[in-house]
Design a protein around this nucleic acid. Structure first.
Lengths: 219, 219
DNA sequence: CCTACCGATCGGTAGG
DNA sequence: CCTACCGATCGGTAGG
């Protein structure tokens, strides 16, 4: 998620390219990344269909470029503000909150780009599917790593294992995104926050709380 | 979800109709309910496209019928076994378990039919969208009602409000369905079960547990 | 249930 | 970036 350096964003035609990708990524969240047609995209951009082929050799190439665009947005809107928080549980909370906020603000009109597209592509194969899985896996790893740090720092018990806790947090956020997109009821974000806070509490509630850095397994 | 009586399943042509709908519902979970084309469906069924129009006047009519078919499957595979459990927390657990099991067994090849289709249609309008929202809302209500019963019976504290708890349970199960479809890693079902069991524990852990049917506190 | 067909739209190309 | 076009496929219809 963070390993690669973004391509140089300068250039005259690069601006146009970026506006195409922004529109494509938006439409992908509402129409679907596959359903999005070049004709429809061209109409939205007030250009001809073949004009798009001047920028992208094929629909698949455009889809892959739209994914990279969405990934940059995700880095900027979710990952970066999250990583600004100090390591450990505060960072875990910040990552969840920025992810949830990005869903709630509707940075993309159809909610979380990767939530929408990974579901759409889960039963297909090819480069688009593979890239989506890569990005999503990388994001899951980032959450797990942050949880592991919090445990190492003694801020979490380590009782729900990192993979378990990461799964729960992801499910709650994606669940809120799904419910909001379906019912347009903002209360689901409050519910997700409440549930997340239970999983990432301000203090370790267990009586057998660890002293320093050790987290003894009681029970 | 349970109010309506299923249509009479008898008849010679009704059998054919049902096999069309079964195939349509299957394809809808992998291809998408909208993306599913009449030509492709006809090919799968080894019949002509116009043969489909003898059964359904339009694509939308077929989509709506496929939803009803999927709803019957859901009633049979999830709701009925869940309701077989006694009222209260055991029923809540049974509903979650049968829903999760239906995802895990891949009753539909693309996982939960309503999980897949509600996401696909969340940003569209029309009768198909409306019916999907109806069915999903009804299912959410069933879960909430069961939780409320468990609280009334003193088997749950009522601290996470029914709507809150129902949201969390739904998110966990749909999260497992999503993760499994994407990564084909069966461990996510174990994780969902672990998380659900924490939310629906065997005993009330709080010291301020209500009397009545409350179970003795061991541990 | 079928063949044969409709106009519209799909992704993509030729040529400029 | 454009116009003009390609074959394939879309949902749907006529007529049987």
């Amino acid at each position: 998620m963070l390993e690669e350096i973004p391509p140089p964003p300068v250039g005259r035609g690069a601006r146009r390219r970026r506006s195409i990708l922004a529109t494509a990524a938006e439409l992908a969240t509402t129409e679907g990344l596959e359903r999005l047609s070049l004709g429809e995209l061209a109409a939205h951009l007030e250009m001809s269909k073949s004009g798009l082929f001047a920028h992208f050799g094929s629909k698949e190439e455009l889809q892959l470029a739209a994914i990279e665009h969405a990934r940059q947005v995700f880095l900027e809107e979710v990952v970066r503000p999250g990583l600004a928080a100090p390591r450990g549980i505060r960072r875990a909370r910040a990552l969840c909150e920025s992810w949830l906020g990005y869903c709630e603000r509707e940075v993309f009109p159809g909610g979380c780009f990767f939530s929408a597209t990974t579901i759409e592509y889960s039963n297909r194969s090819g480069p688009v599917h593979d890239r989506l899985v890569e990005v999503m896996s990388s994001w899951t790893s980032t959450i797990e790593r942050t949880i592991r740090e919090a445990i190492r720092l003694g801020e979490l018990r380590g009782e729900p294992a990192p993979a378990q806790l990461a799964f729960e947090l992801q499910a709650l956020i994606m669940g809120a995104n799904w419910a909001y997109q379906l019912h347009r009821d903002r209360r689901v974000f409050k519910r997700a926050r409440t549930a997340i806070h239970t999983r990432l509490p301000d203090e370790i509630l267990d009586g057998s709380a660890p002293g320093a850095l050790s987290s003894p397994r009681s029970r």
